[in-house]
């Protein structure tokens, strides 16, 4: 007898709460809605805002943040977090400024490769020593900051000849800043590779349920190390953008980008618990965060309040996107 009398094609009631809740569906559009609302609000506050000039300024400001957030998103999708991205970017600006005179055009790829290697080392520590990524990268943040201070002599390293990184300051088609275009390219490239290969399955499975992923024989450890490696490379690339703009490297230059980057990821709607989310969401999140940053002075709020805003944004966005079913299990 093979008549499956009682098998139901639809969900049994016990799994009913696993479907997408209305709140979850809303968060799918949240970053876009926020983006449009912000642009509208800022335009009302300052009619000059919607001009090519100020929009390119926003795009230029956003570029390093987008790249930083994009890399770290991969780690968050795997269920981890990378707190070292900003410190690593700062260190990378110092290294780039120091190496530019000797290495010239090769300095950029070398710095990105070194940053990627540092990321991979943190990934290895996380995987092999079985330390939570939060702790590994918290320690990494401290170590990398100190290294940056030491190698820079605790001061800004000026770049005399910035011609090898100047191309990032060009404009594509007259309006689009090259740095913003490159940031977009980085996001598109990583997102496309992930989407088109088994990586998407592997990353999601690792993020949603690491034990299930492992028992299915997916290369969980490699995926995580890879994510840390890419995140490191992105931090390196963000550093190149910063140096090209500031003509110098500094041991704390990118430090104030950590909170905005985390905010960008969670505002985009990527679940901090892993699995659910995408790089494109972080791109939108980074734009939202940048607009807020640029917009605060426009509406007359002192920039000292910026940090309060990031704190609130992170807590609220996480509250909205958290995978509660998972948290109740993990605690």
């Amino acid at each position: 007898m093979s008549t499956p009398v009682a098998m139901q094609p639809v969900a049994e009631p016990a799994t009913g709460r696993n479907g997408p809740r209305p709140a979850k569906r809303l968060t799918g559009f949240m970053p876009l809605i926020a983006l449009v609302a912000l642009v509208a609000a800022l335009t009302v506050a300052d009619p000059d805002f919607l001009t090519p000039r100020s929009l390119t300024a926003v795009a230029r400001t956003a570029a390093p943040l987008i790249v930083l957030a994009a890399g770290a998103t991969l780690i968050v999708l795997c269920g981890g977090i990378d707190l070292s991205i900003a410190a690593l970017a700062s260190l990378s600006t110092v290294l780039l400024a120091l190496w530019l005179p000797n290495l010239g055009g090769m300095a950029t790829p070398v710095v990105i490769a070194v940053a990627a290697a540092i990321g991979a080392v943190q990934g290895l520590a996380h995987v092999l020593l079985r330390i939570p990524s939060f702790i590994v990268t918290l320690g990494g943040m401290s170590i990398l900051s100190a290294v940056a201070l030491v190698v820079s002599g605790a001061g800004t390293v000026r770049v005399v000849d910035d011609s090898p990184v100047k191309w990032l300051e060009l404009y594509v088609g007259g309006y689009v800043p090259m740095s913003a275009a490159m940031a977009l390219l980085v996001v598109a490239l990583i997102a496309a590779v992930v989407k088109a290969t088994p990586l998407h399955s592997w990353i999601s499975a690792t993020g949603y349920s690491e034990s299930a992923a492992r028992l299915a024989g997916t290369p969980v450890d490699l995926v995580k190390i890879g994510a840390f490696c890419v995140s490191g490379a992105c931090a390196g690339f963000a550093a190149v953008m910063l140096v090209s703009r500031q003509f110098s490297g500094g041991p704390t230059m990118a430090d104030n980008l950590l909170l905005p980057a985390v905010a960008a990821i969670v505002v985009g709607g990527t679940a901090i618990t892993g699995g659910h989310g995408s790089l494109w969401r972080s791109l939108a999140g980074a734009l939202v965060v940048t607009l807020l940053r640029v917009g605060l002075p426009i509406v007359g709020v002192p920039s000292a309040y910026e940090q309060i805003l990031y704190g609130v944004i992170i807590v609220v966005a996480v509250a909205l996107t958290l995978d509660w079913s998972k948290v109740s299990i993990i605690k």
Partner: peptide, 16 residues
């Protein structure tokens, strides 16, 4: 918790 990844699709689970 160990056999399947709940939020992922039937296809993704099957080809994992």
């Amino acid at each position: 918790t160990e056999g399947m990844v709940g939020p992922m699709s039937v296809a993704e689970n099957m080809t994992l």
